[in-house]
Amino acid sequence: MFKSIAVRVSQGTQYIPDPRKADPVGFRGKPVIGAGDCAAGCDACVASCPTAAITLDPVAIDLGRCVLCGDCEPACPGGRISFTNDFRLAATDRRALVVSQPRPDVDPIEVSAALRKRFGRSLKLRSVSAGGCNGCELEVNALTNVNFDIGRYGIDIVASPRHADGLVLTGAITRNMVEALQLCWDGMPDPKLVIAVGACAISGSPFEGSTALDRGFLDRFAPTLYVPGCPPHPLTFVCGVLDVLGIPS
């Protein structure tokens, strides 16, 4: 009893009061492409990128493909690429994830009135890992810990697809998981939505070119929310969901 009280006292208050205003020190988040011109013919950043997330003229980084590894930063001879700890990277539109010097930010998420009405007070999510590496899965798990505590916003991870309003999809979708993923989705009652978490789920880029993937599921069911990263910071997920549902923090 006394030990339990002592542990409780040490635990103190751990939740992040306002996730939108959090400051994750050191996090390699949103890439920033500085002003200036590239040297003629230079493609060092493109060559350094392991997931073909960078295109030229102008230099643009697709956060749906980017694994935030930072390999391009030292590769650029002009020092034009850097990273900030901005974690507000989620988007409802796949194209909004492409950042460049003229378009430096991911488009802000617009609140969906329909989703807000339906799920604004309660959103139950079922997680399926279909070829994840346990990075995204651990970060999805972290959403419910005492720090991120999404339960306070009425958002929960549930065990049964029957209880779920949405699918949290991680992994690049392996052929061996196609059937189980579809069964789980079919088991979820309408209306339902898909949240694609991590570069694997969004674009499959870390494992692109593998014959062991079958991403057809995403052709049939487009995600409502894209949460980029490798793995995404839990704050990217939390704020993305709060934004699309219009939940104050």
Partner: peptide, 28 residues
């Protein structure tokens, strides 16, 4: 169920540029 064909993929990419792929074989 998690088979992504990683061993075959590693041979398709330049051998000195595999770090980020290696980091996500078992990402924990």
């Amino acid at each position: 169920y998690q088979h992504r064909g990683i061993e075959a993929l590693l041979l398709q990419r330049p051998p000195l540029a595999l770090a980020s792929s290696i980091e996500s074989i078992a990402g924990d």
